[in-house]
Simulated assay, not measured.
Amino acid sequence: MKKKGKWNQNQPNIQEKVEELISILEDGVSNFTYSPEEFKALLEMKALMPDYSFRNIMVAKAQYPNGTFFAPLKRWNELGRMVIKHQKSIRIFKPKFKKVNKEDKENSTTEEKQLVGYISVPVFAYQQTEGDPLPIDKVDIKLDGDCPEAREIIHFAEKIAETDNCPVTYGDADGANGFYRPATHEIVVSESLSTNHRCKTLVHELVHSKVHRYDTSSSTSEKEVVAEGTAFVVCSFFGLDTSDYSFRYVKSWSKSEEDALLKYGSQICNTSKKIIREFKTLMEEKSEQILKTA
């Protein structure tokens, strides 16, 4: 993994650097492709999963944003996997039909199914299960490593969250890398992640806490593209390259909207600049304290 140099006064100003990083993000997402091995694994995984509509996938992701594949409990059990204890089911919609008799022009009666509505049914995300390995395990990308830049970003991200009365805890993230809970205004990051991945996830959830706390109108896709895009820009600005993870994450949320980054680019830019300035203020305060005690 590449690491950019730490920000200093001789580098481009915030506006120029952020615009440069957003351009890198746009190119990276646009040109992202899975390797032949990964693509094969995804096809194998898709063949094992129920074929849900795009609408149902979005309904599921709205409840469990980090979910990649969804299936009923019975199907996971057939695949040798069990739902992790205390995991809550995700509700999607299943069409409900009834049999009706229909007469044709020759007065012959035939029986056919007629859609009469939809019922809610429970499913679980792959991340909520454990057990036998599946093809998707070959595509499960994590950011490895423990660099000083990541530790510094974590420190200041925690400070910003603390100022906003948003608790940050590290522990069980319900099978996800992390999540932000608007109802209690808190961030939870998985303790199983490496320092570098923990850093990226914390910034991602910090964006949710600052931008989406009271947002009930934006789609889940918009929220995730903005959060991950901003996390990439902020982390890269301060020396941590998250492109291996961020490009594919943004791509997964924007593939149904090819112009997603064009639509949300200005919001990513503005949010990134705001958070970067908050980081810089804290850095300057830290430097002043060091000078006073020197």
Rank of each mutant, 00 (worst) to 15 (best):
H212Y: 08
I84F: 05
R91K: 14
I290H: 06
T230F: 04
Y180K: 05
Q127R: 12
E205F: 02
D215I: 03
R81G: 07
P72N: 09
V83K: 01
T33I: 01
L282Q: 10
K98R: 15
G117T: 08
H197A: 04
V59Q: 13
L25I: 03
L42R: 15
D104T: 09
E258Q: 12
F279P: 03
D137A: 07
A150H: 01
L73E: 12
D132H: 09
S236P: 01
D144G: 10
E37N: 01
V225C: 12
K6P: 00
K286N: 14
S287D: 15
F97E: 08
K46P: 00
E278D: 15
E158N: 08
K40I: 01
T163F: 11
D27W: 04
P135Y: 02
T110A: 06
P95D: 06
S219L: 06
E149D: 10
R81L: 07
P122Q: 06
K102Q: 12
I153K: 01
F70L: 05
A260T: 06
T293Y: 13
L291C: 09
I57C: 00
V59Y: 08
T281A: 06
S236R: 08
I57H: 05
S53F: 03
C147P: 00
R248P: 00
E158T: 08
I275K: 04
K94Q: 15
V250I: 14
K40H: 02
K138P: 00
S23K: 14
K138L: 13
K263Q: 13
V234K: 00
K4M: 11
E224C: 03
V233A: 06
V18A: 07
E78P: 01
N56A: 06
D104G: 08
V18P: 01
V83A: 07
N196R: 05
A183V: 10
F237E: 10
K274N: 13
I84N: 03
A125N: 05
S192V: 09
K6S: 14
H197G: 07
A183K: 12
F69V: 05
L21V: 02
N8M: 03
Y249T: 08
S272Q: 08
T201M: 02
L134T: 01
